[in-house]
Nucleic acid binder design. Structure first.
Length: 451
RNA sequence: GUGGAUGUAGCUCAGUUGGUUAGAGCGCUGGAUUGUGGUUCCAGAGGUCGCCGGUUCAAAUCCGGUCUUCCACCCCA
């Protein structure tokens, strides 16, 4: 019985053109990372379940893919738990491993494990897939690539500036118009403190995050529905309206935390002087979910296409603490490859010059020409020219059609005539123009970049 | 995790109040044209109507379940 072929929910296959375009994105990201002195690492797809749980908040934990234990896994679960259908209790007995949910937490584990081999501050980048058991939507997948750059072992605010610069540089190279918003968790804490709701900071930030989307009135309503007093909610919304760091600083003199958040942002931005990219802006409503951020936070959205953020990050003061290495501050950002891809596709930003297939295909008229064609193909390949050859001297029309449909730019035609004269026919399949020349002349044309 | 839509040929979609062999366009294969593709003309192949079950003499059509995709939440890249 045939199994109906399909990929799993929230996952997909990539056709050759798609992989080539994705690689274009990865290559640009990688080259910028390396230009800033970051070095690559990789970690396993699986981690201990304990390594991952508790780092992303309750919501995040729910979305971690768990891997069923091997062997007779049910024998270790007490009958009572099975009878009660207590899934939560059973999970830890049924699963010891999980697929990584992001790259940051495995990186924290990596740093602690290899602490003796690493020189702090340690700058690394990592481009690998992560998995989330989220309900799929457009731009939301269960398997997707993240491109993370992080530096651990330094509290220097210069790194905040460096990472902002990396964001700006990558998106400029991709020609993707974006807005890079930055904020600091300590400012949010300060706002909560000044409004007298320090204990409700999380509810406040979750509501504030929606300000653009639902408006001030609904944000206020959401805050009060979460147990925040009316006047406190009012105060929060007033503070948020402040447009400059200076005004904010004046408004939160009473909160030492808030003031230090302001100072951190100012210090980081000072590295740019007058050269701060125009698309970077401070946004006091930016909250971000992942629990481990403690200071600087940032998020990138595309200008135009409606989709979630295409990148985000921030500073985490003590991620390595839970792995037994306290007091190591880190800061990092992430690029969401699939969403960047989707946005670039929607805006038509992939360069037409991307080499999607071989540069030339050898087409032969007869069996002898086909054999000769093989050695010709080899000599082109030796010159670094991406060359294909039709597998047999089939009906010529069929060969032409194949070349055309694959979108290969040139066809090199070999028949008796060419073999005898040593002059080969090269056809530009886009223009239909056809020229004859020696093998050297052919090579020269093929090496010339096409427009 | 909550609420809502969706699924018919490779693709985009028709398909009447349930009623014989389920259609179109594009694409595909072959031919017209035995050394020239993208145009034209002709012919052909391709569907257990997402899957499982129910109602009925009869189901693509009605009902239930399930899966997929999409939308709004939640959350996030």
């Amino acid at each position: 019985m045939a199994i109906k072929p399909s990929t799993l929910k929230g996952t997909r296959d990539f056709l050759p053109e798609q992989v080539i375009r994705r690689n274009y994105i990865f290559d640009i990201i990688r080259s910028v990372f390396e230009r800033y002195g970051y070095r690559p690492i990789e970690t396993p797809a699986m981690e201990k379940l304990d390594t991952l749980t508790g780092k992303y908040g309750e919501e995040g934990d729910r979305l971690i893919f768990k891997i069923l234990n091997n062997g007779d896994f049910l024998s270790k679960v007490p009958g009572q738990i099975l009878e009660e259908k207590a899934s939560n209790k059973a999970v830890s007995m049924l699963s010891k491993r999980a697929l990584r949910y992001d790259l940051t937490v495995p990186f924290a584990r990596f740093v602690v494990q290899h602490r003796n081999d690493l020189q702090l501050p340690f700058k690394r980048y990592q481009i690998q897939p992560v998995w989330r058991a989220d309900r799929p939507q457009k731009g939301r997948y269960q398997e997707f690539y993240q491109c993370d750059v992080d530096v651990v072992g330094s509290a220097s605010l210069m790194y905040e500036a460096e990472l902002i610069a990396i964001y700006a540089e990558v998106f400029e190279a991709l020609k993707l118009p974006v807005t890079i918003r930055i904020n600091n968790r300590k400012i949010l804490a300060g706002i909560a403190e000044v409004a007298g709701i320090a204990d409700r900071m999380i509810e406040m930030t979750v509501a504030l995050d929606k300000l653009d989307k639902i408006g001030a009135e609904k944000v206020a309503r959401e805050m009060t529905s979460k147990g925040i007093a009316n006047d406190a909610a009012e105060r929060v919304l007033q503070l948020i309206q402040l447009s400059s760091l200076e005004e904010m600083q004046a408004a939160m003199q009473d909160s030492a935390t808030g003031v230090s958040g302001i100072r951190e942002l100012q210090e980081a931005l000072a590295f740019f002087g007058e050269t701060l990219p125009a698309n970077v802006s401070v946004d006091f409503t930016l909250a971000r979910g992942l629990n481990y951020y403690t200071g600087f936070i940032t998020e990138v959205t595309v200008d135009g296409p409606a989709m979630g953020s295409i990148g985000g990050g921030g500073r985490y003061d003590d991620l390595t603490g839970v792995f037994g290495m306290p007091g190591v501050s880190g800061v990092g950002i992430s690029f969401g490859a699939e969403r960047i891809y989707d946005a670039m596709e929607e805006l038509g930003l992939f360069p037409a010059s991307l080499e999607l297939d071989a540069r030339v295909i050898v087409l032969a008229m007869d069996a002898d020409s086909h054999k000769h064609g093989f050695t010709i193909a080899q000599s082109l390949r030796k010159e670094g020219i991406s060359t294909d050859i039709y597998p047999e001297p089939a009906k010529f029309k069929k060969q032409m059609k194949y070349a055309d449909q694959r979108g290969i730019p040139f066809a090199l035609i070999i028949g008796e005539e060419e073999r005898n004269s040593g002059m080969f026919t090269l056809k530009d399949l886009k223009t239909g123009q056809q020229t004859k020349g020696s093998i050297e002349e052919v090579k020269e044309v093929l090496k010339r970049p096409s427009l």
